[in-house]
Amino acid sequence: MTDAIETRQDPADDVVPVAERGPGTLRLLLRNPVSLVGSVVLLVVVLAALVGPWIAPYGVNDTDVSRALQGPSGAHWFGTDDLGRDVFSRVLVASRVSVEVALVSVGIALVVGVGVGLVSGYLGGITDGVLMRVVDVVFAFPVLLLALAIVAVLGPGLTSAMIAIGVVYTPIFARVARASTLSVRSEPYVQASRTMGTGNTYVVWHHVLPNISGPVIVQTSLSLAFAILSEAALSFLGLGVQPPRPSWGRMLFDAQDFVGVAWWLSVFPGAAILLTTLAFNLVGDGLGQVLDPKRRTQLAAQAGGR
């Protein structure tokens, strides 16, 4: 007797045809119009960050007082600031430093946080207790305040900002990684592996890491969004990116003197922050749905039904 009947009766088979794998993660993600828009915006931001300095129509620090405080026009799409600098060029070029700080700081948080969370969740016991109390301590401080204090202590600048943002976002990664590890650790396939005499390194590498990657990827995307915001806030306070290098946050700070006089000075840099953050958030949200196994079967079913 073959398994022919059995295959057709299985409830899962009603959803995902046995012979094919169902649509890939990326295809499922891009099928959602909201995630698609987010991905496109993200792509534009990344491109701007890469080639911004070369395609900017004006130098970021080319001052021309005769052209100061002009509204948006064909020559200056986003207008000019009080020193006659082209706002569009400055917004464009500033994208790189934002993305750079976000990537490096989230990278720090990711590596340290996932490491701590993995060890803590997998080993449990006293190690877990101690590590998690440490994480609790860091988590207790409001994000921006701690970042501010760290930058204050290390001295203002790009490196300090990266370290500070990295530190404040580490606990969230540790918690996400720990929670996922705990649930994966109690999965029967891990227990099965243990009964075979599998070593910890093997289990962590082959079973735990691949299966916690979903939540970690989602958290990475969301943290990138918040890192962009934090960098902007630090730069706004004059503690992040230092002049003459343009940054969105600092541009907003300078714009405050011209509230009601030159709206374009505050609208465009702010919109750039908003769009970048939004794009990371939308993509993170979409990934969260696509990478959640339960939601995934649902989405795949809907995709197949159409």
Binding site: A12, E187, P188, Y189, Q191, A192, S193, T195, M196, G197, T198, G199, Y202, H206, H207, P210, N211, P293
Partner: peptide, 29 residues
Amino acid sequence: IAMVFQDPFAALNPRATVSRSISEPLRVH
């Protein structure tokens, strides 16, 4: 001493192929 668990939906690593799952004890030992 080998063991087979109750829930076949949870007893296999969802991110490993059948071949990888079956050969795991071989590789471990």
